[in-house]
Amino acid sequence: MTTDTKGHRSRDTTGLGTGLVLPQALVLGGMAAWLTLIMINNITDSGTNIHLIGQVLSMEAMADNPNQGQGLLGRALSADLAAPALYGVIGYQAVASALLWWATVAHLRLAFGRGDGTRATLFGNLALSALAGLALMFLVGGLWFGYWITFGPVQQVHFTLLLVAVGGLVLVNLPRGRTTA
């Protein structure tokens, strides 16, 4: 129990607050698991992604089609850069995954009354900003190479990822206030 400035006694619920901490932890943990699995898939099946990234970088699908993207072909890069690009993405995914797990733990600690709401929110913001950054990197980089012309469904996945990250940021930043008893 705590006492406010007017002498009223209230139950301290800064951890659970409005009951949002568990959904926040669930979303953060779900995104952490999802991104970790993507990273593992990128490591264990790197050949598939190297091939696909190579197609995007070299813009080969547009080069083979005289009706699409011809004005963008000057941006094409060697498909040999696909492997280093994938390894860079895997490194970024590793950092973002670690941040998401860290934020999940901070929210779970908060749910059990052992954490700090400000720190949990900060960690959630860092983690979800990293996730949004990954989506934006794919969207902007992909747009540079005109991937929307030949890989439209992939672009939709990246837009969805950005929306999920922004939705997570909104959820993590909802107030966890005190309730009175």
Rank of each mutant, 00 (worst) to 15 (best):
T2A: 11
T2W: 06
T3N: 06
T3K: 09
K6A: 14
K6T: 14
G7Q: 04
G7T: 01
R9W: 08
D12W: 10
D12T: 09
T14K: 14
G15W: 01
L16R: 15
L16I: 15
L16C: 15
G17M: 02
G19P: 02
L22F: 09
P23W: 02
L26Q: 09
V27G: 03
G30H: 04
M31H: 10
M31Q: 12
M31S: 12
A32K: 04
A33Q: 10
A33G: 12
L35P: 00
L37M: 14
L37Q: 15
N41C: 08
I43H: 06
I43P: 00
T44C: 06
S46Q: 11
S46G: 07
T48H: 10
T48G: 10
T48V: 08
N49R: 08
N49C: 05
N49E: 09
N49K: 06
I50T: 07
H51M: 09
L52M: 15
G54T: 00
Q55M: 14
L57R: 01
S58Y: 01
S58A: 13
M59L: 11
A61M: 13
A61D: 15
A61P: 12
A61I: 08
N67L: 14
G69T: 02
G69F: 01
G69C: 07
Q70P: 04
G71F: 09
G71S: 13
G74K: 05
G74I: 06
G74W: 07
R75M: 14
R75H: 14
R75A: 13
D80E: 14
D80R: 08
L81E: 12
L81G: 07
A82T: 01
A82N: 02
A83P: 01
P84K: 04
L86R: 01
G88Q: 07
G88P: 04
I90H: 03
I90F: 06
I90E: 03
Q93M: 10
V95A: 15
A96L: 06
S97G: 10
S97K: 02
L99Q: 09
L100V: 06
L100T: 05
V105F: 07
A106W: 00
L108E: 03
G113T: 10
G113F: 02
R114A: 15
R114E: 14
G117F: 01
G117N: 11
T118E: 11
T118H: 06
A120Q: 00
A120N: 01
T121R: 10
T121G: 09
L126N: 05
A127I: 01
L128T: 01
S129G: 13
A132Q: 03
A132P: 00
G133E: 02
G133I: 04
L134T: 04
A135E: 01
M137R: 08
F138V: 06
V140Q: 07
V140S: 09
